[in-house]
Design a protein around this nucleic acid. Structure first.
Lengths: 207, 207
DNA sequence: GCCGAAGCTGAGCGAGCGCTTAGTGTGCCC
DNA sequence: GGGCACACTAAGCGCTCGCTCAGCTTCGGC
């Protein structure tokens, strides 16, 4: 199986780039809390408690609660963009690359649902500077998908009238997985990824 | 033009069912505030201020801040379900009814974006009883769309393998419009509705 | 064996939260 | 025109929030 993600199943815990260990535990606790209750409904006491620390410990590693969200959002967007870039830049037809991009992007939104939820739905809680930085990453995400669709249209593989609108719809469909996906539901991330890749190929008139 | 919504363009201000006038002004103010900042980040002082009243005035008409959200969510879900039911029960082929359902559902999510945003993204802020009531409405929404797709498959109009999964994707795509739609953006609700109806017909293999 | 740096805690500050209460103005009924 | 129901306000209560700070522990270097 050739996919854009190198090791989906055997992927080690993410966030390993975050050190020291206490800072990572706090960040993982924040991801869970933000995903469950939302940024504004989450208290710093809750985050510290989940990480097994006192409320004050949080401020050794992070200046504010918002810095936690910023770090999570930045790392998550970097990862999402990396997944799409890997799919977009592999060799193969536009059809193969679009299917790969959607299936791996969706697999990430389902499999890492808590992270994806925070990344996709808590943007407005960031301050202006952090938000601008993240929006720039989102434009890059959009450009990757639009590029594949554009190439498929030019090669005659796809039949698409509104390239920008269709790109928007493909990304919107994939991102919304983070809202409804249920770990205890009937579908695995792999199954949703495969279904969505098929639906997207139909949307662009491939095959 | 025959659509599921009787009068999209000329639709009078909604919320006219909410009386007296002061209660409606507070509710409209709450919709705006919840849509902009989210339920938890909105203060009762902000809601009352937008409605031109003192903070205490809110509690003449609503027992709690959560009751405001509950009323908004209930009315919004009723309206969304009504739109889908009108499209599903009109006469015509499954293709026509699915296109009508998606275009009017999407048009509502784009045109009434602030309401739709609160309705679709603030469910978790409700208490258990209110949430259960709303979830029941969502099951009815799902059943309407699934019904049309099922009939299209049975009549041979559609080519769909996973009916439940495709229903989920169609609703997910439409609902997510409330997240990204921008009133000042390049597309009108009508244009997005038409584009999305076309994309959904492709997804189900119609035509 | 002493020292300073680093990681963490217990206690708590000022602010703003949801919500309450006592009191005020207004208009309608008789 | 007196009384009353109703809509609303000013003030503020009790609480929890994000965040701070003085002090304790631990540990490597010498």
């Amino acid at each position: 199986m050739s996919t854009a993600e190198e090791t989906t199943g055997g992927e080690v815990e993410p966030w390993e780039e975050v050190t020291p260990d206490a800072a990572r535990r706090l960040l993982v606790a924040a991801v869970e809390a933000f995903a469950e209750r939302g940024y504004h409904a989450t208290t710093t006491r809750d985050i510290a408690g989940r990480a097994g620390m006192s409320p004050a410990a949080l401020y050794i590693h992070y200046k504010t609660k918002e810095e936690l969200l910023h770090r999570i959002s930045r790392i998550g967007h970097d990862r999402a963009l990396e997944i799409l870039q890997t799919a977009a830049r592999r060799e193969g037809t536009a059809t193969e690359r679009l299917a790969d991009a959607v299936s791996s992007f969706v697999r990430w939104h389902a499999g890492r649902r808590t992270t994806a939820r925070v990344v996709q739905y808590e943007l407005d809680a960031l301050g202006p500077d952090a938000r601008a930085e993240i929006l720039d990453l989102r434009r890059q995400v959009d450009a990757e998908v639009r590029g594949i669709i554009q190439e498929g249209v030019e090669s005659g593989e796809f039949d698409v009238i509104d390239i920008h609108g269709t790109t928007l719809a493909v990304l919107s469909l994939s991102i919304d997985v983070a809202r409804w996906f249920n770990v205890h539901g009937p579908r695995t991330p792999e199954e949703v990824g495969a279904l969505y890749a098929d639906l997207v190929l139909r949307m662009v008139g491939a095959g």
